[in-house]
Amino acid sequence: MTMRILGYSYEATIVCPACALADAEEGRIIPDGRIRFEHDEHGLLDNLEDHHGNPLRPVFSTDEGAHDEFCGSCLERLEWCL
């Protein structure tokens, strides 16, 4: 089984990659201030944090229960959002 990022955990919810990209574009999640140029498989910087200063945590396809999770923004099942 190939490990993929199904979503991201931040702001006390799990968000699909499309909604996380939208949040990054709108400034709801921002780089933590360190100069980083690494992007993950969805094009998000690997040093993003929410407005509380908490880092985004990827939710992987191999995580227990990840396939049953829904996006806290668009309410779609995470694995359907890819």
Rank of each mutant, 00 (worst) to 15 (best):
D46A: 11
E11G: 11
C19W: 00
E64P: 03
C16Q: 04
V59D: 02
L56N: 04
C74N: 08
D63R: 00
E26W: 07
H52I: 00
G27S: 01
D50A: 04
I5F: 04
I35L: 15
D40W: 01
I29D: 04
G72V: 06
D23Y: 02
R77P: 00
G43C: 05
E79M: 12
E69D: 08
G72S: 09
R4V: 10
E64N: 10
A18Y: 07
T2D: 15
G65F: 01
R34Q: 15
I14G: 01
I35W: 11
L48K: 01
G27P: 07
H39F: 10
C19S: 13
G65C: 04
M1W: 07
P17Y: 03
P31M: 04
H51Y: 05
E38V: 13
L78A: 05
D50C: 06
D50I: 07
D50V: 08
G27L: 07
L78M: 06
P31Q: 09
G43W: 02
G27V: 04
L44P: 00
L78F: 03
P31D: 06
C71K: 01
C71F: 02
Y8T: 02
C16H: 06
D32N: 15
E69R: 14
D63T: 00
E69C: 13
S9N: 10
V59P: 00
F37P: 00
H39E: 09
E76P: 03
H51K: 14
D40E: 10
P31W: 02
E49F: 01
E41R: 09
I29K: 09
A20W: 08
I29T: 03
R4K: 11
S61T: 08
F60R: 08
A12I: 03
D23G: 06
I14S: 05
A22R: 13
M3D: 10
R28C: 02
W80F: 15
E11D: 14
E69L: 15
D68T: 12
S73R: 15
P31L: 02
L44C: 04
A22W: 04
F70D: 08
L48W: 00
P31T: 09
L21T: 08
A22H: 10
R4S: 10
E38Y: 09
H52D: 12
